Simulated assay, not measured.
Amino acid sequence: MKNKEGWDGKLRMEPPKAVITNPEALEDSDYSDPEAPPVDEIDADEDLLEGEDVNVEDIDLVHCRISSIAALHLERFNKLQRLCLRQNQISRVDFPSNVAATLTELDLYDNLISHLKGLDEFQNLTSLDFSFNKLKHIKNISHLVKLTELFFVQNKISKIEGLEGLTVLRNLELGANRIREIENLETLSALEELWLGKNKITEMKNLDSLSNLRIISIQSNRLTSITGLSALPNLEEIYLSHNAITDLSGLESNTTLRILDFSNNQVTNLEHLSTLKNLEELWGSNNKLASFEEVERELKDKEKLETVYFEGNPLQLNGPAVYRNKVRLALPQVTQIDATYVRV
């Protein structure tokens, strides 16, 4: 039993006083001290790369229970360019200098890495994947100026930071983290794809400098409106599903838009789409759309429109037997309604 102070009734004498220098460790089961000496790693029982050609350019070791990079003896591979170590037990990035100098692609997806260290000598990397690790901060990568792809999916990152200098980066994936604000992207002038799904973002902002952006995904966040996209003339695809958006205003300037996904929101009508003449796919399932007349009025002039999703709306729920025929009559140019192709 516990009393109101939280005492569990088991302690019979007061323990000696101790000073805790890292109290955050008590609050976080995944806490690790970046300044602490590394935990001793157990060398592999066998050389996983024994017999491999020393001139090989690609090495792929997926799900091999690797915990020690040093045990792989990578220093013998002087021409290594692409290294995939997915689904292992690596907690520390520690590569030989010669390998760091030649690698262009490094994949450490699904490991146990909690700190971004050990990348100082990776000057030629173009692709880096730290998805599904235990990272809380983006650090020590701004010198990787040749990066074109960067993946941090499913970590514990709460702030977009440390990306200055990545001026040729084209694809940035930060989905499934703890980010609340879009920020610190000003220097990423070459960025074409930005993936921010499953975070805690309430507003799209600070995107004006990303004039080359073609794709933005911000699904499963906390948006209530569409904002911050008017300065993105090259935007072709936007994914907004699973938010709390009530109308589609805010897209009027995005005339190059081809794909619009606003499924699983609270949109009641299709107004504000008149300028989007290049729409090819419109995903609007599970909203509050109720008028076939409005569907025809707002979308019939979209000659390139091929795919529409309206299932889960009053349009479909109130008359499922006639729903598809009504959509076909309203939008004769469409070749796919929901998951089913239209029969000619």
Score class of each variant (00 low, 15 high):
T255R: 04
Y239A: 13
D261N: 06
E237D: 06
I245M: 03
I226M: 14
L232H: 14
L260I: 00
G228M: 05
L251S: 06
S225Y: 04
S263P: 00
L251R: 11
D261Q: 02
S263L: 03
L235F: 06
L232M: 13
S225V: 08
N221Q: 14
F262N: 01
I259K: 00
L232T: 12
S230L: 07
N254W: 06
S225R: 15
N221V: 05
I238P: 15
D247M: 14
I259C: 02
I226N: 07
E236V: 00
S220M: 07
S225L: 08
H242Y: 15
L223V: 01
L257W: 09
D247S: 13
N234I: 13
D261I: 00
A231P: 14
G250K: 03
E252M: 07
T256K: 10
D247V: 11
S253R: 04
L260D: 00
L257V: 01
S253A: 10
S230P: 11
L248T: 06
F262M: 02
D261T: 04
T256F: 00
R258H: 15
D247W: 15
I238A: 09
P233W: 08
R258D: 11
L229K: 08
G228V: 12
T224E: 09
N234Y: 04
L229W: 10
F262V: 12
S249W: 12
S253Y: 03
N234T: 07
E236M: 06
E252G: 00
R222Y: 06
L232G: 14
N243D: 05
Y239T: 07
L229N: 10
L232S: 08
L248M: 13
A231R: 05
L223A: 00
I238E: 13
T224I: 10
S220T: 01
N254Y: 06
H242L: 09
T224N: 13
T227H: 05
N221S: 07
E252A: 05
S225Q: 07
P233G: 02
F262W: 07
F262L: 03
R222F: 13
D261K: 01
I259D: 02
L248R: 09
T255K: 08
L257N: 06
A231K: 13
L223D: 02
S220E: 05
N221W: 02
E236I: 00
E236A: 10
G228T: 12
L260Q: 01
S249G: 09
L235N: 03
H242E: 14
L257R: 09
S220G: 05
S253V: 00
F262T: 10
S253F: 01
L260W: 00
P233D: 05
I238S: 07
E237C: 09
S249E: 08
I245K: 02
Y239H: 10
T256N: 07
T255F: 11
D247G: 10
S253N: 01
D261L: 03
S241M: 15
L248C: 09
R222W: 12
E252R: 00
R222V: 06
L240A: 14
E252L: 07
G250I: 01
N254T: 09
G250E: 01
L229C: 14
I245R: 02
S253K: 10
R258F: 04
I238L: 11
S263E: 08
